[in-house]
Structures are given as structure tokens and as C-alpha cells.
């Protein structure tokens, strides 16, 4: 059953990537526990607007946990305290009356802050551009049934392909490494027979681009897996390490 709770928010406010940011404290009163976290922020923003205070900027779009747009660090945890959940699917029943909630943007050199909680994750797009695709042109592709794919392989590819590209893995990694994101994409394509011809160049190029973007290095602490809203396994990172090792020999 839903009830009303009062919260104190400590929110990171920052004009843009060049100016320094700071925390501001806001009260969030009468929050319905059935609200989602973003709906709670909506309510706070409505109030701030009425008081002529600039509302808090935060990225969001689908609000059903699939587009990967939303995401902040809530009390030190990317996407908040519930496992396998994006911020938009986090509900206020997971908080208690009177609780202090600290909200910060995903922090990483490769994710510069745009405004308040919104960050620039275009580095992920550039990693995909470096090889996260299968080079087939639109046109007469062979009949879908001409290439059977082992169910196990297809399912594993799907497990990896579920990544929503939200960047929580980077935010949660103590080194701001993007290995979970990169490995999931590499593996999705590498394990399928369609993706095999480009396996080596894809693997090498995506890792190169990842380094170039200024992400950190994986030190096998597995914080990424714990923060991933799609619970993508770190075994993908092991597979990337392996394929990268093998791809050095062409």
C-alpha cells in the first residue's frame, strides 16, 4: 500500500562542464511511495519552478527501463539501491521517511557533465562507430533460414545484446572503465556466425577506441555487473580479454 514520506535531497548542480558544481539541498515533502524516482524529481522540479528556482536537469526518456537515457548516482550507487533496475524503474517505496538522498551525476572523464545530472555519453557511440556492427548493406540479404544459428549461441548473443548503453557500468567502476559495455557489444556480434568475419578487427578497434575516449582499465572488481540494470555478466569481459588476446595474431 502506498503512503507519503518526506525526504531531503542533496543534489549536484552544475551549469556546464566548464564551471564547477556544488551540492544543493532541497526538501521533498509528501512523496507517494508508489512514485518512481524520476516522478519524485518531477514533483520537486514543479515546486522549484513555482519558487522561481531553475529546475534540476536530468536525462530521461522512455521511463520504462529500456532506452538507457536516465541514470544518476543515488547514495553512491549507480541507478540507486535496487539491483537490476534503472533509475526510472526505481520506486520510492525503497526509501524511508526522513531519509537523506544524495544524487550525483555519473562521474567519469569520458562522460563530461552537460548540466546538473545530465552527462555526455557520446563516447559510447564513438566506440560503436569503431566496429560495433556487421558490415552488411541494405538489400538482398540471404533468406533468414539459410543460416541456422545454434540456439545456445543465439541466446548468449541476446544476453549480451540486452545492454541499454546507460553507462552505469562506467559510473560504478572504481576506475571508470567501460569494459562491460564494450565486451557485451563485442560478444553479441562475435559469437554469431554473421559477425565472425569481422571478429578480429572489431575486437581490436573497439578496444582502441575505448582507450582513446579516456576510460579506465578493468581491475576485475565486478562493480559494473552489480550496477548493471540488465545484470550483464562480467564473463563477457573475460571473453573480450580472450578474444583480444587472440586477435593480436592476424
Amino acid at each position: 500500500m502506498s503512503k507519503k514520506i518526506n525526504l531531503t535531497l542533496k543534489v549536484w548542480r552544475q551549469k556546464n562542464c566548464k564551471s564547477p558544481g556544488a551540492f544543493e539541498v532541497y526538501e521533498a515533502k509528501g512523496i507517494d511511495t508508489d512514485m518512481s524516482f524520476l516522478e519524485m524529481l518531477d514533483v520537486v522540479n514543479e515546486r522549484l519552478t513555482k519558487e522561481n528556482i531553475d529546475p534540476i536537469s536530468f536525462d530521461h526518456d522512455c521511463r520504462e527501463g529500456i532506452c538507457g537515457t536516465c541514470g544518476s548516482v543515488v547514495n553512491g550507487q549507480a541507478h540507486g539501491p535496487v539491483k537490476g533496475t534503472t533509475l526510472c524503474q526505481l520506486h520510492m517505496r525503497n526509501f524511508t521517511d526522513g531519509q537523506l538522498i544524495v544524487i550525483e551525476p555519473f562521474r567519469a572523464k569520458a562522460f563530461p557533465v552537460i548540466n546538473d545530472l545530465a552527462v555526455d555519453r557520446s563516447s559510447f557511440d564513438r566506440i560503436i562507430q569503431s566496429g560495433g556492427f556487421i558490415s552488411i548493406k541494405t538489400g538482398q540479404a540471404p533468406d533468414a533460414h539459410s543460416l541456422p544459428v545454434l540456439k545456445g549461441r543465439s541466446d548468449s548473443a541476446m544476453d549480451a545484446a540486452q545492454c541499454i548503453g546507460c553507462g552505469a557500468c562506467v559510473a560504478a567502476c572504481p576506475n571508470a572503465a567501460a569494459m562491460l559495455f564494450v565486451s557485451a557489444k563485442v560478444y553479441h556480434l562475435n559469437i554469431l556466425p554473421q559477425g565472425e568475419p569481422e571478429l578480429k578487427t572489431r575486437t581490436i578497434n573497439m578496444v582502441k577506441q575505448m582507450d582513446k575516449e579516456g576510460f579506465g582499465n578493468c581491475s576485475n572488481e565486478y562493480e559494473c555487473e552489480a550496477a548493471c540494470p540488465k545484470e550483464i555478466s562480467v564473463s563477457h569481459i573475460a571473453r573480450l580479454n580472450q578474444q583480444h588476446r587472440k586477435s593480436n595474431f592476424t
Partner: peptide, 22 residues
């Protein structure tokens, strides 16, 4: 029909049966 062919070629992991077919 061409859409399905195109997407499979792109690596879209459609659900498959144990036979390996869609």
C-alpha cells in the same frame, strides 16, 4: 520478408528453436 533477412544478417538475435531456425 526482406526485413527479417536484413535484420538477421545484421546480427539481430531473434528467438530461435533448438533446430537453430527462427
Amino acid at each position: 520478408n526482406s526485413i527479417i533477412d536484413q535484420c538477421v544478417a545484421q546480427g539481430v538475435p531473434f528467438a530461435r528453436e533448438y533446430s537453430g531456425y527462427l
